[in-house]
Write a protein that binds this DNA or RNA. Structure first.
Length: 719
DNA sequence: GGATCGCTGATTTTT
DNA sequence: TCAGCGATCC
């Protein structure tokens, strides 16, 4: 252990060894936060202060939890059993399964995802006769979620808090929605923490039990906690006060999801006698990168205050490049410039996996994707649809849920007619009406209607077939286990046949996904265990080993690092995001600035910030001026360039495109450059290709991606 | 029950 | 510009 401690700097060591009482570790970007967390964890175990089950360690993401678990095992030289280490939601769910009865749920309650939540809300809105046109369900759902994030159940919500949403009937809708969830034996994400907080608050015995169990609390990313998470932590910490929170107020970028920076700003008040430890030595980035990031974030008010300093001598300023700022004429040129640099760096031996393009909004990745495809550069887009959100996977999950819980109406509705069983809107409405009247789940209702002969024709046959199958699959589940049962289900339900018959280009991929689904099932002992995992861990395990450029939003980039980082779209109108500013004013501007700070501090070696003078927004071109954030970084840390920069004015009458052979330059002929029929060439717009014919200065080229085209020779270069 | 038309609206989204 | 939807038609 001494060895692990010896590897820490004095502040880190303090953060690890201050075990008693509340501790707030303010960890700037790249200052060894994870190392501190895991070493502290190991330290508690190795000094015999606590056993694994006596430490509650909370993270926000499954990824962070996994990393902590792995690094802890590495530190200790063996995997650790019996840990209470996980995300807020996973830990709350684990607790709630034990005490579900206290809030009117069964232990095997279903955890609904966003999609289910919305469908359920729509149904309740219909029942409550609230016009979904006038009040978009996502808007109302958003408000309900914000209440849950603050720990406010339907009873805590007043008419004043709801305003005129849903014509002033949102509180009633909220109540009805919660009642419906309970009737379905289901909880949404917000419920997990809200219910658990409620339970702890009203059951002192139970709380006392947890107090005796959890002697130490460790919390990661504290700046991102919302009110209910804070309340939950405070309840659990109120006996022993041994709570250690790690976070960075400068990286709080999730306020729009209910996170309250105030939690971290208030820490010393909330936990009297708290010790605050600052980690400011950055071991990640070069000095110019740190200086630029620090100067930028200094424009925010109300910070706890930290200054990142280069942590090691090797990162001396003169040894490093300044932050590059490229001013371009338009967004297409911006994409080209990024592509060119990536190629240049790749040629000089940099790995693609160490390059990332970080954008403000998801749609921005498209331009770069297109460019990279043209150039034949491998890339991956992080974010987007995740594995468990794909339609075929969600269908399979719905079937699985129905096996485990016959009363799962949402699952039933999802798959009742997938594959087609002739059950349409009419039959479904009849089912619903009866179910509501008899207050029975849809499956039971369907059986009753069939028995009465009230469900006939195609729909009747379809429903009868499904119910019979479900009974058989449940038997298979009991006898041969969940993997066999699900395999049988996918075949016998006609689901795989449906996909096989599907001629669309996506169908083969969907079948492949289902195979992957079956493989994933095998990692779990029970179907219920798998379903819990799916609900709480919704993620893709994409292999990060392949050498690809990463494209993602700034939000998705938090916690990651790369040698080389591109930050495109630094323009007013794009970044800071105008909608955010509209909604949140100065607070939102500061959050946007933190986002910029997160972006810059992802880089170890180089940052390239780009902005374009013109950008096409939807249909039309718009003039753009550089982002105000660029003005907030002192020139001394910047190296300006690009066709539209002051240093690089283009020739009059040209658009200043950065092409190998600009329009205004006379390029050598194809022959002079050794381009003949059969040559591999490269074209700025169409990428790589092969020359199939040549006549004078005209070439016919079969491009790898763009098809065959006639091109003047001066626009291509040898590949 | 499924295909087609036309309108709308378009940030971020750890769980 | 364009995807995603609800309404409408066959």
């Amino acid at each position: 252990m001494a060895e692990h401690l010896a590897r820490l700097n004095p502040e880190q060591r303090m953060a690890v060894e201050t075990l008693e009482g509340p501790v707030l570790v303010l960890a700037g970007a790249g200052t060894g936060k994870t190392r501190v967390l895991t070493t502290r964890f190991a330290h508690l175990l190795l000094t015999g202060r606590a056993s694994p089950g006596q430490i509650l360690a909370v993270t926000f993401t499954n990824k962070a939890a996994r990393e902590m678990r792995e690094r802890l095992a590495a530190l200790l030289g063996r995997p650790v059993e019996g840990l209470w280490l996980g995300t807020f939601h996973a830990l709350a769910a684990r607790m709630l399964r034990r005490y579900a009865g206290l809030v009117g749920l069964d232990a095997n309650f279903t955890i609904l995802d966003a999609d289910d939540q919305l469908r359920l809300l729509k149904q309740v809105m219909e029942a409550e006769r609230i016009d979904a046109k006038r009040w978009p369900p996502p808007l109302l759902m958003g408000q309900i979620q914000r209440w849950k994030d603050r720990g406010e159940g339907p009873r805590a919500v007043t008419a004043a808090m709801a305003g005129d949403l849903a014509g002033g009937r949102l509180p009633a809708l909220y109540s009805a929605y919660q009642a419906r969830l309970k009737a379905l034996n289901a909880a949404d994400f917000g419920d997990l923490l809200m219910y658990m907080t409620e339970i702890l608050r009203h059951n002192p015995d139970l709380l006392g039990q947890y107090h005796r169990q959890f002697r130490y609390l460790l919390v990661d990313e504290y700046q991102d906690t919302n009110v209910v998470q804070y309340l939950w932590l405070r309840l659990l910490a109120q006996a022993q006060h041994n709570i250690c929170c790690v976070g960075d107020d400068d990286q709080s970028i999730y306020s729009w999801r209910g996170a309250e920076v105030e939690n971290i700003l208030r820490f010393e008040k909330d936990f009297p006698g708290a010790k605050v430890i600052r980690l400011e030595r950055n071991y990640r980035s070069t000095a110019p990168i740190l200086a630029a990031a620090s100067a930028l974030i200094a424009h925010n008010a109300g910070r706890l205050g930290k200054t990142l300093r280069p942590g090691s001598e090797a990162r001396a300023p003169e040894a490093s490049e300044r932050v590059a700022v490229l001013s371009l004429w338009d967004s297409e040129e911006e994409a080209r410039a990024v592509g060119e640099r990536i190629e240049a760096w790749r040629r000089s031996g940099e790995s693609l996996a160490e390059m990332a393009v970080l954008v403000r909004a998801g749609f921005q990745t498209r331009a770069f994707e297109e460019r990279l495809i043209t150039l034949g550069i491998p890339y991956r887009v992080i974010g987007g649809l995740r594995f468990y959100e794909r339609a075929e996977i969600r269908d399979a999950i719905a079937y699985a849920r129905l096996l485990v819980q016959p009363g799962d109406d949402l699952a039933f509705e999802r798959i009742i007619n997938v594959p087609r069983r002739g059950v349409g809107a009419v039959a479904l409405r009849a089912l619903h009406e009866r179910a509501r009247a008899a207050d029975t789940p849809l499956t039971a209702t369907a059986a009753a209607l069939l028995a009465e002969g009230a469900l006939r024709g195609r729909a009747g046959e379809g429903v009868r077939g499904l119910l019979a199958h479900l009974a058989i699959w449940r038997e298979t589940l009991a006898r041969e286990g969940h993997v066999m049962a699900m395999r049988a289900l996918l075949d016998e339900s006609g689901y795989t046949d449906m996909l096989r018959a599907d001629k669309s280009p996506e169908a083969p991929g969907r079948l492949e996904n289902l195979k992957e689904f079956i493989r994933a099932l095998a990692d779990f002992e029970t179907l219920a265990g798998f379903l819990d995992h799916v609900a709480l861990v919704m993620e893709n395990e994409e292999n990060t080993t392949s050498d690809k450029v990463s494209l993602m939003t700034l939000h998705a980039a938090k916690g990651l690092e790369f040698d080389n980082v591109f930050l495109p779209g630094w323009e007013e109108g794009v970044f800071p995001n105008p909608r955010a500013l509209e909604e949140g004013g100065i607070k939102a501007l500061e959050e946007e600035r933190r986002l910029a700070y997160v972006g810059i501090t992802r880089a170890r070696k180089r940052v390239v910030i780009l902005h374009a003078a013109q950008r096409r927004i939807y249909a039309n071109w718009q003039d753009s001026i550089p982002s105000r954030f660029l003005d907030e970084i002192p020139e001394e840390w910047l190296a300006r360039g690009g066709s539209a920069s002051r240093q690089a004015r283009p020739l009059p009458g040209t658009r200043g495109a950065v092409t190998a052979f600009p329009l205004h330059a006379r390029a050598p002929t194809a022959k002079a450059r050794g381009i003949v029929v059969g040559s591999r060439i490269f074209h700025q717009n169409f990428g790589h290709g092969t020359v199939v014919a040549a006549e004078d200065d005209r070439l016919e080229i079969a491009f790898d991606e763009a098809g065959t085209k006639h091109i003047l020779d001066r626009f291509v270069e040898p590949a």
